[in-house]
């Protein structure tokens, strides 16, 4: 294998393939996270309101979450081909298993007196939801987004096995297929860096969105890892 890290390869490939892979990786992970949030919000609101909907919904998203991404990618491939949707649709589905429970927990944590105060001020159900309940639930939602984004950013790499790009393609095609360790190490490290960077941005977003939360207190994270 020679030297483990060939810095000259990294220096030559900073723009392409490394830079392109990072940009593709960001696209392939941020689009599903955004789509997942868009889908999880109405589902979570519905599940928090009609409690009977929640257990079956939770079962469905948990079972979907257990299905390996590689299986879903290959099953979608004949329909969506080598477009980003082959990766984006399954990854968006996976985020639901993390986001929906966090949104439901967040909405359930809204104190009763806050809800009553909103009603007393003349808020209808919709305005109360958008202007009071969802903002109060923001820390829980962002805690979910943090877990979902780390998971998605690391899972995108698997999409290289069906032929899509991103840091997985760097790992697989430049690295493993050439029996060349440097691109694999670069790919692994950059994936972790991206995950931590997005995580940091989400923490920052939470501080900006919830100025009323005292500084040291952080979003209540769900116990354990998924």
């Amino acid at each position: 294998m020679g030297e483990v890290i060939r810095w000259d390869w990294i220096a030559r490939g900073l723009e392409d393939p490394i830079g392109t892979a990072v940009l593709q990786h960001l696209q392939l992970s941020l689009v599903p996270i955004a789509l997942g949030l868009l889908a999880a919000l109405p589902l979570g609101v519905a599940a928090a309101r009609w409690r009977r909907v929640y257990p079956p919904l939770l079962t469905v998203v948990n079972v979907l979450y257990a299905v390996p991404s590689i299986a879903l990618f290959f099953l979608l491939l004949p329909y969506t081909g080598l477009t980003m949707w082959t990766a984006v649709l399954p990854l968006a589905l996976y985020t639901l298993a993390i986001l929906v429970p966090n949104i439901v927990d967040g909405l359930h944590q809204v104190p009763g007196h806050v809800r009553q105060a909103a009603t007393a001020m003349g808020f209808g159900p919709l305005r109360r939801l958008v202007l009071v309940e969802l903002p109060v639930a923001v820390p829980a939602v962002i805690a979910g987004l943090r877990v979902a984004s780390v998971a998605t950013i690391s899972m995108v790499s698997v999409a290289s096995m069906v032929g899509l790009g991103g840091l997985g393609a760097l790992i697989l095609r430049e690295g493993f297929n050439n029996r060349f360790a440097t691109p694999i190490i670069v790919g692994v490290v950059l994936t972790a860096v991206l995950a931590f960077a997005v995580d940091g941005l989400l923490v920052l977003a939470q501080r900006l969105l919830t100025p009323w939360v005292p500084r040291p207190a952080r979003g209540r994270e769900r116990k354990g890892v998924r």
């Binding site: 950013i153 690391s154 790499s157 997985g168 694999i184 790919g187 994936t191 972790a192 995950a195």
Partner: peptide, 11 residues
């Protein structure tokens, strides 16, 4: 958890 599984496997 932030590490990509295929990277760990191939490495």
């Amino acid at each position: 958890r932030a590490l990509p599984t295929i990277g760990v496997m191939f490495l």
